[in-house]
Simulated assay, not measured.
Amino acid sequence: MNQEFNAAYWEQRYQTNQTGWDTGSITTPLKTYFDQLTDKNLRLLIPGCGNGYEAEFLSRNGFTQVYLADSAPAPLANFKKRVPGFPEEQLLLQDFFTLDGTYDLIVEQTFFCALPPELRPAYARKCAELLPAGGKLMGLLFDTTFEKEGPPFGGNREEYRLYFAPYFDFLVYETATNSIAPRQDKELFILLQKK
Protein backbone atom coordinates (compact mmCIF):
# COMPACT_ATOMS: atom_id res chain seq x y z
CA MET A 1 0.00 0.00 0.00
CA ASN A 2 1.55 3.27 -1.16
CA GLN A 3 -0.51 5.82 0.74
CA GLU A 4 0.16 6.46 4.40
CA PHE A 5 -3.16 7.12 6.13
CA ASN A 6 -1.79 9.23 8.96
CA ALA A 7 -3.03 12.36 10.74
CA ALA A 8 -1.75 14.62 7.95
CA TYR A 9 -3.66 12.61 5.34
CA TRP A 10 -6.94 12.88 7.26
CA GLU A 11 -6.40 16.54 8.11
CA GLN A 12 -5.92 17.28 4.41
CA ARG A 13 -9.16 15.43 3.60
CA TYR A 14 -11.07 17.61 6.08
CA GLN A 15 -9.39 20.83 4.95
CA THR A 16 -10.33 20.14 1.30
CA ASN A 17 -13.84 18.83 2.11
CA GLN A 18 -13.09 15.35 0.75
CA THR A 19 -15.37 13.77 3.34
CA GLY A 20 -17.77 11.60 1.37
CA TRP A 21 -18.38 9.42 4.44
CA ASP A 22 -19.77 12.39 6.39
CA THR A 23 -23.57 12.06 6.57
CA GLY A 24 -24.09 15.44 8.26
CA SER A 25 -25.96 13.91 11.20
CA ILE A 26 -26.18 10.80 13.35
CA THR A 27 -27.25 7.74 11.36
CA THR A 28 -30.45 5.86 12.22
CA PRO A 29 -28.92 2.58 13.47
CA LEU A 30 -26.80 4.39 16.06
CA LYS A 31 -29.59 6.75 17.11
CA THR A 32 -31.92 3.78 17.58
CA TYR A 33 -29.39 2.04 19.81
CA PHE A 34 -28.63 5.18 21.85
CA ASP A 35 -32.36 5.88 22.34
CA GLN A 36 -32.73 2.68 24.37
CA LEU A 37 -29.79 3.40 26.72
CA THR A 38 -30.92 4.47 30.18
CA ASP A 39 -27.58 4.98 31.99
CA LYS A 40 -26.48 8.52 31.12
CA ASN A 41 -23.23 8.03 33.08
CA LEU A 42 -21.78 5.39 30.76
CA ARG A 43 -18.23 6.17 29.62
CA LEU A 44 -18.41 6.15 25.83
CA LEU A 45 -15.54 6.36 23.37
CA ILE A 46 -15.97 7.29 19.72
CA PRO A 47 -12.65 6.56 17.96
CA GLY A 48 -11.92 8.18 14.61
CA CYS A 49 -14.88 10.36 15.51
CA GLY A 50 -14.79 12.69 12.51
CA ASN A 51 -17.26 15.51 12.97
CA GLY A 52 -18.78 13.70 15.94
CA TYR A 53 -22.50 13.77 15.18
CA GLU A 54 -22.97 10.77 17.48
CA ALA A 55 -21.30 12.63 20.37
CA GLU A 56 -23.38 15.72 19.66
CA PHE A 57 -26.56 13.65 19.87
CA LEU A 58 -25.44 11.92 23.07
CA SER A 59 -24.34 15.16 24.70
CA ARG A 60 -27.61 16.90 23.88
CA ASN A 61 -29.44 13.92 25.39
CA GLY A 62 -27.74 14.06 28.78
CA PHE A 63 -24.79 11.70 28.39
CA THR A 64 -21.91 13.32 30.26
CA GLN A 65 -19.00 10.89 29.78
CA VAL A 66 -18.60 10.91 25.98
CA TYR A 67 -15.02 10.94 24.67
CA LEU A 68 -14.13 11.70 21.06
CA ALA A 69 -10.78 10.66 19.59
CA ASP A 70 -9.35 11.63 16.24
CA SER A 71 -5.81 12.04 14.95
CA ALA A 72 -6.77 15.07 12.80
CA PRO A 73 -7.48 18.42 14.52
CA ALA A 74 -10.04 19.75 11.99
CA PRO A 75 -12.96 17.46 12.88
CA LEU A 76 -12.49 18.08 16.60
CA ALA A 77 -12.45 21.85 15.91
CA ASN A 78 -15.63 21.47 13.82
CA PHE A 79 -17.28 19.62 16.68
CA LYS A 80 -16.21 22.23 19.22
CA LYS A 81 -17.82 25.00 17.11
CA ARG A 82 -21.11 23.08 16.94
CA VAL A 83 -21.10 22.02 20.62
CA PRO A 84 -19.26 24.83 22.42
CA GLY A 85 -20.04 23.69 25.98
CA PHE A 86 -18.59 20.21 25.48
CA PRO A 87 -15.78 19.43 27.97
CA GLU A 88 -12.41 20.12 26.37
CA GLU A 89 -10.75 17.22 28.21
CA GLN A 90 -13.12 14.80 26.47
CA LEU A 91 -11.82 15.81 23.02
CA LEU A 92 -8.80 13.60 22.44
CA LEU A 93 -6.46 14.62 19.63
CA GLN A 94 -4.77 11.25 19.62
CA ASP A 95 -4.15 8.14 17.58
CA PHE A 96 -6.59 5.39 18.58
CA PHE A 97 -3.81 2.88 19.13
CA THR A 98 -2.18 5.10 21.78
CA LEU A 99 -5.34 5.63 23.85
CA ASP A 100 -5.60 4.36 27.38
CA GLY A 101 -8.31 4.42 30.01
CA THR A 102 -11.41 2.30 30.36
CA TYR A 103 -14.76 2.79 28.65
CA ASP A 104 -18.11 1.05 29.03
CA LEU A 105 -19.02 1.36 25.35
CA ILE A 106 -16.99 1.95 22.20
CA VAL A 107 -18.97 3.31 19.25
CA GLU A 108 -17.88 2.29 15.74
CA GLN A 109 -18.96 4.53 12.87
CA THR A 110 -16.74 4.55 9.73
CA PHE A 111 -13.46 4.30 11.64
CA PHE A 112 -12.83 0.59 11.08
CA CYS A 113 -13.31 1.00 7.30
CA ALA A 114 -10.84 3.92 7.24
CA LEU A 115 -8.04 1.81 8.67
CA PRO A 116 -5.79 -0.14 6.32
CA PRO A 117 -7.09 -3.73 6.50
CA GLU A 118 -3.83 -5.03 7.97
CA LEU A 119 -4.64 -3.01 11.13
CA ARG A 120 -7.98 -4.73 11.72
CA PRO A 121 -6.66 -7.41 14.11
CA ALA A 122 -4.92 -4.66 16.13
CA TYR A 123 -8.17 -2.64 16.16
CA ALA A 124 -10.11 -5.57 17.67
CA ARG A 125 -7.36 -6.13 20.25
CA LYS A 126 -7.21 -2.42 21.17
CA CYS A 127 -10.99 -2.23 21.60
CA ALA A 128 -10.76 -5.18 23.98
CA GLU A 129 -7.96 -3.46 25.93
CA LEU A 130 -10.08 -0.32 26.41
CA LEU A 131 -13.14 -2.21 27.68
CA PRO A 132 -13.63 -3.99 31.00
CA ALA A 133 -15.10 -7.49 31.05
CA GLY A 134 -18.73 -7.03 29.98
CA GLY A 135 -17.97 -3.75 28.16
CA LYS A 136 -19.44 -3.39 24.68
CA LEU A 137 -18.38 -2.49 21.17
CA MET A 138 -21.34 -1.29 19.12
CA GLY A 139 -21.69 0.14 15.67
CA LEU A 140 -21.62 -0.45 11.96
CA LEU A 141 -19.14 -2.18 9.66
CA PHE A 142 -19.33 -2.19 5.87
CA ASP A 143 -20.34 -5.66 4.68
CA THR A 144 -19.46 -5.02 1.06
CA THR A 145 -16.57 -4.48 -1.32
CA PHE A 146 -15.87 -1.16 -3.02
CA GLU A 147 -14.95 -0.58 -6.66
CA LYS A 148 -12.22 1.93 -5.83
CA GLU A 149 -9.23 1.27 -3.60
CA GLY A 150 -9.92 2.66 -0.14
CA PRO A 151 -10.42 4.23 2.16
CA PRO A 152 -13.11 3.20 2.76
CA PHE A 153 -11.96 -0.40 2.79
CA GLY A 154 -14.66 -3.01 2.50
CA GLY A 155 -14.85 -6.54 3.78
CA ASN A 156 -17.32 -9.12 4.99
CA ARG A 157 -18.78 -10.49 8.18
CA GLU A 158 -16.87 -13.79 7.99
CA GLU A 159 -13.55 -11.93 7.86
CA TYR A 160 -14.50 -9.60 10.71
CA ARG A 161 -15.61 -12.48 12.94
CA LEU A 162 -12.03 -13.79 12.92
CA TYR A 163 -10.74 -10.50 14.36
CA PHE A 164 -13.31 -10.09 17.12
CA ALA A 165 -14.00 -13.68 18.21
CA PRO A 166 -10.91 -14.03 20.44
CA TYR A 167 -12.03 -11.11 22.63
CA PHE A 168 -15.80 -10.72 22.30
CA ASP A 169 -19.11 -12.55 22.51
CA PHE A 170 -21.45 -11.67 19.64
CA LEU A 171 -24.76 -10.30 20.97
CA VAL A 172 -25.93 -8.85 17.64
CA TYR A 173 -24.15 -9.42 14.35
CA GLU A 174 -26.52 -8.92 11.45
CA THR A 175 -27.32 -6.76 8.45
CA ALA A 176 -28.61 -3.38 9.61
CA THR A 177 -32.27 -2.98 8.71
CA ASN A 178 -32.39 0.81 9.13
CA SER A 179 -29.28 2.05 7.30
CA ILE A 180 -29.33 5.32 5.43
CA ALA A 181 -30.31 4.84 1.76
CA PRO A 182 -26.80 4.81 0.19
CA ARG A 183 -25.68 2.14 2.69
CA GLN A 184 -28.82 -0.02 2.65
CA ASP A 185 -27.99 -3.75 2.77
CA LYS A 186 -24.26 -2.93 2.94
CA GLU A 187 -23.85 -2.44 6.70
CA LEU A 188 -23.42 -4.96 9.46
CA PHE A 189 -24.77 -3.86 12.84
CA ILE A 190 -22.61 -5.20 15.64
CA LEU A 191 -23.06 -5.35 19.39
CA LEU A 192 -20.16 -7.26 20.89
CA GLN A 193 -19.47 -7.85 24.57
CA LYS A 194 -15.99 -8.30 25.93
CA LYS A 195 -15.40 -11.77 27.34
Rank of each mutant, 00 (worst) to 15 (best):
K195C: 07
Y9C: 05
T102D: 10
C113I: 10
V172F: 12
G135C: 08
E4V: 15
V83W: 13
K195E: 15
A181S: 12
L188F: 10
L30G: 04
E158N: 08
L140V: 15
L188D: 06
D70G: 05
Y123V: 02
D22N: 08
L188T: 05
A7P: 02
L68Q: 00
R157M: 13
L119K: 13
G50I: 00
F86Y: 12
L171S: 09
L171F: 11
R161M: 13
L141I: 14
C127N: 06
T102K: 14
P182N: 12
Q90K: 13
T145I: 13
K31S: 07
C49R: 01
Y53G: 04
A128N: 06
L45N: 01
N17D: 13
I190N: 02
F111G: 03
V66N: 02
D70K: 00
A69V: 10
Y103H: 10
D104T: 02
K31C: 04
L162S: 09
K81L: 10
N78G: 08
G24Q: 11
L162V: 13
Y67E: 05
P87Y: 13
K194F: 06
Q12T: 15
Y67Q: 00
Q12P: 01
G155N: 07
N2K: 08
L140A: 04
F96Y: 14
F111Y: 14
I46C: 03
E158A: 11
E108Q: 04
E4T: 15
E56P: 03
T145P: 02
D100Q: 11
R125H: 15
P75K: 08
I190W: 07
L68P: 00
A77M: 14
E4G: 01
S25E: 14
M1P: 06
F164V: 01
I26M: 02
F170L: 05
E158F: 11
V107G: 01
N61A: 09
A122T: 11
E56K: 10
A7G: 06
Q94Y: 05
N6C: 03
G52L: 01
T19C: 03
T110W: 07
L45E: 06
F111H: 02
R13M: 14
A128R: 09
K194Q: 03
Y160H: 04
Y160P: 05
M1L: 14
T177I: 09
T19R: 06
C113W: 08
P152R: 09
